[in-house]
Design a protein around this nucleic acid. Structure first.
Lengths: 155, 155
DNA sequence: TAGTTCGTTCAGTAGGTACTGAACGAACTG
DNA sequence: CAGTTCGTTCAGTACCTACTGAACGAACTA
């Protein structure tokens, strides 16, 4: 088993550790190793998993911004490849999630204030923490994008 | 069902959504609402779950820094309460995890370079991304801690 | 000593996902 | 038209983990 294969498995375990499907991590790892677009079929064969799983998980990864779907005229196949700056897109997704959570928590502040004033203060703190997290993540993503754009521009 | 109870359930679902046990989120939510220390037994009764589950999940939350274990002379019970700055500790934990991941990935760079030079570059990028993430999270935690310490100090 | 009250551990279970295989629609070819 | 090759969907399964209940050790009391 090559180091590349082991790396792919490690990525699977990292994803699993974070509560995501192992296959998603393997797809991500494979696309890092290959560095080029692969068809859904190729991914399926290379990883030894069903096309159904690849379809589901690759779309999930694309939604998160880690990889992207590509297409070619005259070819019905879906290709997937590593996004240019996967970390940027993943951070953006995390920021959105934090925003949603901040909003969800915020809706409880006033109702809880009717029942328990000090508790409402703590809930408000939590909502602010989520909001702040969203902000920091968003800024970070922006900074990363600029850094990487400049770096590439100098090549 | 009160707004506080609904809030506790929402926290459970948020944790579940993030890949953590629902009970952990409920404990966290309960301690936010109560704003004081509760014994393991009290948490168990209030949430309607076994002491075993509370034991396991509360220790997990304490390990992550979201809550903390407290004790009193002459009382064998374990009490848990919200940490002063839960977000700070949670960020610190995340930073540590990123550091571990950066390290785990870094170990693959050279072996992969032997097999596939360009792939090694991409793996190195990933390792740097994790390392950078750890750094940003650490800085953020430090900044938060200072902000909050100052804020409290002025009260 | 025996009995109580803690928290923890662990085997077992229930519930929920990850994954598969089969069926399907769409887009194409001959 | 039938046949092929795509991707997706969905029912079924296999697995995994969250949770429980029981058993246990520790620390205490009587």
């Amino acid at each position: 088993m090559s180091s590349s294969d082991r790396f792919i498995e490690i990525m699977g375990l990292m994803f699993q550790d974070g509560g995501d499907p192992r296959i998603a991590g393997r797809i991500f790892g494979l696309l890092i190793i290959e560095g080029r677009e692969l068809s859904l079929q190729q991914i399926s064969e290379r990883l030894g998993v069903s096309r159904a799983s690849v379809s589901t998980n690759a779309r999930q990864l694309a939604k998160r911004g880690a990889i992207r779907l590509t297409a070619h005229a005259g070819d019905r196949q879906d290709f997937y490849e590593l996004n240019n700056f996967p970390s940027v897109d993943v951070l953006g997704e995390m920021a959105e999630r934090m925003t949603r959570q901040a909003q969800a928590v915020r809706e409880f502040i006033e109702p809880i204030r009717q029942e328990n004033e000090p508790a409402a203060e703590r809930v408000e703190d939590l909502s602010r923490a989520f909001g702040h997290a969203a902000e920091v993540l968003g800024d970070w993503a922006t900074k990363l994008r600029n850094d990487q754009t400049n770096q590439r521009g100098h090549e």
